[in-house]
Design a protein around this nucleic acid. Sequence first.
DNA 1: CACGGCTTTATTGTCAACAATACAGAAACC
DNA 2: GGTTTCTGTATTGTTGACAATAAAGCCGTG
Lengths: 225, 225
Amino acid sequence: MHGIVFTIPEHLVTKQRIVSGCLEFGMVRSEAIADNLRNEIISGRFPEGAPLREINLARRFDVGRASVREALQQLVHEGLVVAKPNCGARVAPAAPDSIAELVVPLRKVVETFALRSCFHDLREADFEAWDRLLDDMRSACLKSDYPRLAELDIAFHRSIIQRAKQPDLLAIWMTLVSRLRQHFHNSHREYDEPIKVYYEHLAIVAVFRTGKLDAAVDALGRNIE
Amino acid sequence: MHGIVFTIPEHLVTKQRIVSGCLEFGMVRSEAIADNLRNEIISGRFPEGAPLREINLARRFDVGRASVREALQQLVHEGLVVAKPNCGARVAPAAPDSIAELVVPLRKVVETFALRSCFHDLREADFEAWDRLLDDMRSACLKSDYPRLAELDIAFHRSIIQRAKQPDLLAIWMTLVSRLRQHFHNSHREYDEPIKVYYEHLAIVAVFRTGKLDAAVDALGRNIE
DNA sequence: CACGGCTTTATTGTCAACAATACAGAAACC
DNA sequence: GGTTTCTGTATTGTTGACAATAAAGCCGTG
């Protein structure tokens, strides 16, 4: 082959039917592929700058190039991937710090807005879903599995946005949070004990359960910074 | 044909090579199509809820369906179009007021951030580009051409974002402003004299020319609300 | 006449082949 | 030797054809 700088770890190129994890009814293939790739990029399993060749991905997911193209385009919009016409797509480099300084407060505004607008509709089922996520997060912390931890951290916050059931909100949030993926890895590694990440989210859900809106907004807001 | 509720005005379905206006070198077809459609939706020439059939658009722009699909996907991501799998795409309904209340302040933060980060690099060429845009805006005001006015208003603000030369910034801004297209139409119509929209932007550029950052940020910020 | 299931049809989702492009290496030239 | 041009190859851009899906119309039945 030709000498490329970034190669994708061997265990990742194994062919996998895209049923992995998601692919709900009505979900179109490209969405499932995008979900997979998004997680792998956000979690850091795909290094920054890694090339994403359509044909490789098509073979890996066992689909045609069209589906892969759509998935990649989606990720380009989210800012996780950069694509130059005729030159292919690569994992986007981390956004400059200046952007992160802009985006963190924006993200805080969006998430607390979402929380406010769904807080009084929260049901026991919602708390239980968070409990399950927290369990996963706990085991990721214990194993110091930082990629998985980043994935779960983001999944937690996304679930709040999704709970607000305003598609616009989700789109805005995704655009923001994609620019912060580096932020997640760094902040997790700053903790002397990863398990503290778990405890922090555990506390947030506990506050949610109390039903006190202001306290909940506070707890969430502090976690975001 | 089959009786559909929303039909696209006859004069709009005429076949047009996508060269119209844009299609810079290196620009891929789907981008040009997206630009065209975006303008037509933002300006309100496509009514809310109007169906966007791939095959119609493909014929209209004289390209294959794939290019149209990509353009539509782009617009879906921006929130101008909603698409249900297997059911096609339609012009998205206006975002609920609650979202607008969230987004306006966010937009203000983003735009003033962009202005700050490019302000001291502004050259005479930039001002002249704005002068040309202002001329267009003036004639749109005089003709009370509200769709065109909305287009130009947005183009003005986008030019500020683009001038900051941070792709992430543009992506974030687009996601926000697409949710506000209704806002533009309403606010323009609120003016007793449309020409005042022109004067307001004229004043902004004038302040930019003075080189006083704080005053410029102020002027821009007040225009956004 | 209302209603549930079948068929038809328009439309999207997917694919595989072809065209256009960019990049790398070889060859020719100064 | 260094530079330019050319050529080949890998990759994306685009297309048209086919499969899958959902919605509308049709038809028989109660």
